[in-house]
Lab assay of single mutants.
Amino acid sequence: MSIQHFRVALIPFFAAFCLPVFAHPETLVKVKDAEDQLGARVGYIELDLNSGKILESFRPEERFPMMSTFKVLLCGAVLSRVDAGQEQLGRRIHYSQNDLVEYSPVTEKHLTDGMTVRELCSAAITMSDNTAANLLLTTIGGPKELTAFLHNMGDHVTRLDRWEPELNEAIPNDERDTTMPAAMATTLRKLLTGELLTLASRQQLIDWMEADKVAGPLLRSALPAGWFIADKSGAGERGSRGIIAALGPDGKPSRIVVIYTTGSQATMDERNRQIAEIGASLIKHW
């Protein structure tokens, strides 16, 4: 067993022997301040990774656009098919120029040779490549099948209805392509620590998230040296922004954090800054 596999296998073990965790309302004060600064709703939840206990939450059962955070769930569904012998990570998928959609920095470079399922998941999570996500959605049967996968996990809230990039439209009061912070946090925890996926697939999923290259201005910008984070960000229309993450000190994750916002007129930089400040408060009061 590799060191990384050992780390993920012992996530519940280490967490069980940690000192009790206590909620700190100071972080919620910052979440509410972010709402004021952005002029928009902000949803927040913080779960203990081992027990699933909610440590703090704000608007945990209000719907927010998922945006690209759905790509972690998508690759979880792909990995479940791999575990069941219905898919192979090494299978190569070929596609054409007509398949390319807006923001496809990886797939646009491989029109000639195609990409493997493993490479597509890596591109979808680490670079948020939209064509990679659409190609992977095709392998599982489309958005409705991802929703069905989530329902089978016990998540009857999260739903995907459309493809990239239309799913980022974020129309107010439109339930399409949305989740709730509580539902997303619980589902992410199941994917990373539950028995739904094999140990190898859980490790692969967290490795992809740990290698995320496009979430630097968010929670990662607030992390002290030595902290662990595996995350996936999302951005959408109407001032929408979000991030889902597993993080913790001492090089291992111990909490799940989900943050979503929508309806702001603020710039992307300002949305990023507010999420980073929430992260800084979380870490300060850990």
Score class of each variant (00 low, 15 high):
Asn130Asp: 05
Pro65Glu: 02
Asn168Asp: 07
Glu277Tyr: 08
Ile256Cys: 06
Glu270Val: 13
Leu188Cys: 09
Ser96Cys: 10
Thr69Pro: 04
Gly279Trp: 03
Phe149Pro: 01
Val157Gly: 10
Asp250Val: 10
Glu210Ile: 14
Phe17Gly: 09
Ala266Asn: 12
Phe17Ile: 13
Pro60Gly: 15
Arg159Gln: 09
Phe70Asn: 05
Leu10Ala: 14
Ser128Gly: 02
Thr112Leu: 15
Ala77Asp: 09
Cys75His: 00
Ser51Pro: 03
Phe13Ser: 09
Ala211Pro: 04
Leu219Ser: 03
Tyr260Ala: 02
Thr112Val: 13
Gly242Ala: 10
Asp212Ser: 07
Thr112Met: 10
Ala124Leu: 03
Glu164His: 01
Val21Asn: 06
Leu79His: 01
Gly39Pro: 05
Arg189Ile: 07
Pro12Gln: 10
Leu111Arg: 08
Ala276Glu: 08
Asp269Ala: 14
Arg176Trp: 07
Ile54Val: 15
Gly248Asp: 02
Ile275Leu: 10
Met180Asp: 11
Gly39Trp: 08
Ile275Thr: 03
Leu79Met: 11
Arg271Val: 10
Arg59Glu: 03
Ala276Pro: 01
Ala200Phe: 09
Arg241His: 04
Ser264Ala: 08
Ile3Leu: 12
Ile3Pro: 13
Leu73Thr: 08
Ser57His: 13
Arg59Pro: 00
Asp231Leu: 04
Ala183Pro: 07
Ala211Phe: 09
Lys109Glu: 14
Val117Ala: 04
Thr187Ala: 09
Leu10Thr: 13
Gly154Ala: 07
Met153Ala: 14
Gly216Pro: 05
Gly52His: 06
Leu219Phe: 09
Phe6Val: 11
Leu218Phe: 04
Ser240Ile: 01
Asp250Leu: 12
Leu197Pro: 03
Phe13Asp: 01
Leu192Trp: 08
Ala15Cys: 15
Leu218Trp: 02
Phe17Asn: 08
Ile256Met: 07
Pro172Tyr: 11
Lys30Thr: 12
Met115Ala: 06
Pro105Ser: 05
Thr131Met: 05
Thr158Phe: 07
Arg118Ile: 09
Trp208His: 03
Gly43Met: 00
Pro224Thr: 06
Arg189Thr: 09
Ile11Tyr: 11
Glu62Val: 08
Ser221Leu: 10
Gly85Ala: 09
Ala148Asp: 14
Lys232Arg: 06
Thr267Cys: 10
Ile11Thr: 08
Leu167Cys: 12
Gln203Ser: 13
Tyr260Asp: 00
Leu137Trp: 03
Tyr95Glu: 01
Ile93Cys: 06
Phe13His: 06
Gly154Ser: 08
Ile171Tyr: 14
Gly39Ser: 14
Asp129Thr: 00
Asp231Gln: 05
Asp212Trp: 02
Ala211Asp: 15
Ser221Thr: 13
Thr139Met: 10
Met153Asn: 10
Gln86His: 13
His156Met: 08
Ala225Thr: 15
Leu197Trp: 03
Ser264Trp: 04
Thr187Tyr: 03
Glu119Met: 06
Gly43Asn: 00
Pro20Val: 03
Pro249Thr: 07
Arg255Trp: 01
Thr261Tyr: 06
Arg59Leu: 03
Arg189Ala: 14
Lys213Gln: 14
Pro165Leu: 08
Gly279Met: 04
Ala132Val: 00
Thr179Ser: 09
Pro165His: 05
Arg63Phe: 06
Gly90Tyr: 12
Gly194Met: 08
Gln88Asn: 13
Asp212Arg: 04
Leu167His: 03
Thr193Tyr: 15
Pro65His: 04
Ser254Met: 14
Ala16Ile: 12
Glu166Cys: 11
Leu247Ser: 02
Lys252Asp: 09
Arg255Gln: 03
Arg255Gly: 02
Leu136Ala: 06
Ile244Ser: 03
Pro65Tyr: 03
Lys144Leu: 13
Ala123Asp: 02
Leu160His: 06
Leu47Thr: 09
Pro253Ala: 13
Asn272Ile: 03
Arg241Lys: 06
Arg255Pro: 00
Arg241Met: 04
Ile125Lys: 00
Pro217Ser: 10
Phe14Val: 11
Arg176Thr: 06
Leu188Asp: 00
Ala183Gly: 07
Ile93Met: 03
Ser80Gly: 11
Thr116Ser: 10
Ser128Gln: 00
Ala9Cys: 12
Gly52Pro: 04
Ala170Val: 12
Leu150Phe: 10
Glu61Pro: 01
Ala246Leu: 15
Ala133Pro: 02
Asp269Glu: 15
Ala246Gln: 05
Phe64Lys: 01
Val21Trp: 05
Asp129Arg: 00
Leu199Phe: 11
Ser201Pro: 03
Leu120Val: 05
Gly194Arg: 09
Ser122Lys: 13
Thr267Ser: 13
Leu136Met: 07
Asp269His: 12
Ala211His: 14
Arg91Thr: 08
Asp83Ser: 06
Arg7Gln: 14
Glu35Ile: 03
Val101Cys: 10
Ala16Tyr: 08
Arg7His: 13
Thr147Cys: 08
Ala182Cys: 13
Phe22Val: 06
Gly90Phe: 10
Pro224Asn: 06
Val257Pro: 00
Asp161Pro: 01
Ile206Gln: 12
Pro253Ser: 09
Glu56Phe: 04
Glu164Phe: 00
Asn152His: 15
Met268Val: 09
Leu167Arg: 02
Val8Tyr: 15
Val106Asp: 07
Asp83Arg: 03
Pro217Trp: 05
Ala124Thr: 12
Thr158Gln: 01
Ser96Ala: 13
Gly236Glu: 02
Val42Tyr: 06
Leu167Asn: 07
Thr131Ala: 11
Ala9Phe: 12
Ile45Asn: 03
Leu191Asp: 00
Val258Phe: 02
Leu89Phe: 08
Leu247Met: 15
Gly154Ile: 02
Val101Phe: 07
Leu160Cys: 11
Gly141Tyr: 05
Arg202Met: 06
Glu145Gly: 15
Arg118Ala: 15
Asn134Tyr: 03
Leu55Ser: 06
Phe14Trp: 07
Ala132Ser: 08
Tyr103Gln: 04
Ile259Cys: 07
Ser201Cys: 07
Leu197Val: 05
Trp227Pro: 00
Val42Gly: 01
Arg91Asn: 08
Met127Gln: 12
Glu87Leu: 11
Pro143Glu: 05
Glu166Tyr: 15
Phe58Val: 09
Gly76Arg: 00
Pro20Ser: 08
Ser68Arg: 00
Arg41Ile: 09
Glu119His: 09
Gly43Ser: 06
Ser201Leu: 06
Leu191Gly: 01
Glu210Ser: 10
Ala133Leu: 00
Gln204Gly: 05
Glu61Gln: 14
Ile171Lys: 14
Gly239Met: 02
Val72Gln: 02
Ile45Glu: 05
Val117Lys: 01
Ser96Pro: 07
Phe149Ile: 10
Asp161Arg: 02
Ala246Arg: 02
Ser2Lys: 11
Ala170Pro: 08
Leu136His: 01
Ala185Leu: 02
Asp129Glu: 01
Ile11Cys: 13
Phe70Gln: 05
Gly76Cys: 06
Trp163Val: 13
Thr138Lys: 15
Lys30Ile: 09
Lys284Asp: 14
Ser80Glu: 12
Ile256Thr: 03
Leu73Arg: 00
Leu79Ala: 03
Pro65Ile: 03
Phe6Leu: 11
Arg59Cys: 04
Arg92Asn: 09
Gly234Arg: 00
Ser57Cys: 09
Tyr103Pro: 07
Gly90Ala: 13
Leu73Val: 13
Met66Gly: 06
Ser80Lys: 14
Lys30Trp: 05
Lys284Val: 10
Gly43Ile: 00
Thr139Leu: 15
Glu102Lys: 08
Thr126Cys: 11
Asn50Ala: 12
Leu55Val: 10
Gly239Arg: 02
Asp174Gly: 05
His24Gly: 14
Arg220Asn: 03
Ala266Thr: 13
Tyr260Ile: 09
Asp48Cys: 07
Lys144Trp: 09
Ser68Asn: 00
Thr179Ala: 03
Met66Trp: 01
Leu19Pro: 10
Phe6Asp: 05
Met153Tyr: 08
Ala246Asp: 03
Asp36Pro: 05
Ile256Phe: 06
Leu191His: 04
Lys53Phe: 10
Ala200Leu: 10
Phe17Trp: 10
His285Leu: 09
Tyr44Trp: 03
Asn98Cys: 07
Ala266Arg: 13
Thr116Lys: 06
Arg41Ala: 09
Ala245Val: 04
Asn134Gly: 03
Thr131Lys: 02
Ser221Pro: 09
Leu219Cys: 04
Leu282Val: 12
Cys18Trp: 12
Leu135Asn: 03
Pro25Ser: 10
Ser51Cys: 05
Gly141Leu: 04
Leu38Phe: 08
Thr198Leu: 09
Lys190Thr: 14
Arg202Ile: 07
Cys18Ser: 11
Ile243Phe: 05
Phe70His: 08
Asp269Ile: 13
Pro12Met: 14
Ala200Met: 11
Ala235Gln: 04
